[in-house]
């Protein structure tokens, strides 16, 4: 038999649980608001600092399987990851131009808003070499949007050219980047659009794609 006191205690605990849940939800909302405010304010602060910088883009040409250097002047943020992101968005934007030699509609089609092809670019320090010497290079992890991967033409040549132009453009402007990995929507994927291998690490120290896994 449950005593009256136990029943009251149970009711008390139940009320406490409900109040606690309400407080938790409110706290979570506030934390999210703060996080959101932080995220939206950071790029604005960066944009103020951005100064026009001469950059080299490696533009692919499907007709002869080549990469052509193209000089541009871009406002680049100070932060290295943000610089890499702006560089690559500009590169992929050039693929959408009407005169493009490597046409890719990209996220949202040919008239899309900027900045939807690559979700993020992360830069990570490389592990020490086997002999213990510090490795000054960095690995760039390029996270494509699903929309970009879906709009990418399928074929060994178009896919390989996209990867090589990204790797080459990163290394040409940020020489510290010596390795590149690719993700789609935050996840590892077998191929970009059915061909070029996205499971491996690409070496950026040379213009070709040679390297180990």
């Amino acid at each position: 038999m449950i005593s009256r006191a136990e029943r009251i205690l149970f009711m008390g605990m139940l009320i406490a649980a409900v109040i606690m849940a309400a407080i938790l939800i409110r706290l979570r909302e506030r934390a999210q608001d703060r996080l959101h405010a932080l995220q939206t304010s950071t790029p604005l602060a960066e944009a103020v600092e951005a100064l026009p910088t001469a950059v080299t883009l490696l533009i692919p040409n499907d007709a002869d399987n080549s990469l052509q250097e193209s000089q541009r002047s871009l406002p680049l943020p100070h932060d290295e990851s943000a610089r890499a992101h702006v560089l690559l968005e500009t590169l992929l934007e050039s693929f959408k131009e009407p005169s493009s030699t490597h046409p890719i509609a990209g996220a949202g089609g040919s008239s899309s808003a900027r900045g939807l092809d690559i979700d993020e670019v992360f830069l990570m320090p490389l592990p020490q070499a086997r002999d213990g010497a510090p490795n000054p290079g960095k690995m760039a992890v390029v996270n494509f949007s699903t929309a970009f991967a879906q709009s990418h033409p399928s074929g060994i040549e178009p896919e390989t050219l996209t990867l090589l132009s990204i790797i080459g453009t990163l290394h040409a402007n940020l020489p510290a980047i010596t390795q590149v990995r690719f993700l789609v929507d935050g996840h590892p994927r077998d191929t970009l659009a059915g061909h070029a291998d996205l499971t491996r690490v690409y070496l950026a120290s040379s213009t070709d794609s040679e390297g180990g896994r």
């Binding site: 499907d62 399987n65 033409p153 074929g155 060994i156 040549e157 040679e210 390297g211």
Partner: peptide
């Protein structure tokens, strides 16, 4: 593929 022209010959990029 529908991209490019002619025949593309590819060999492995492994060293």
């Amino acid at each position: 593929t529908a991209t490019g022209s002619g025949v593309h010959l590819y060999t492995s990029s492994l060293a």
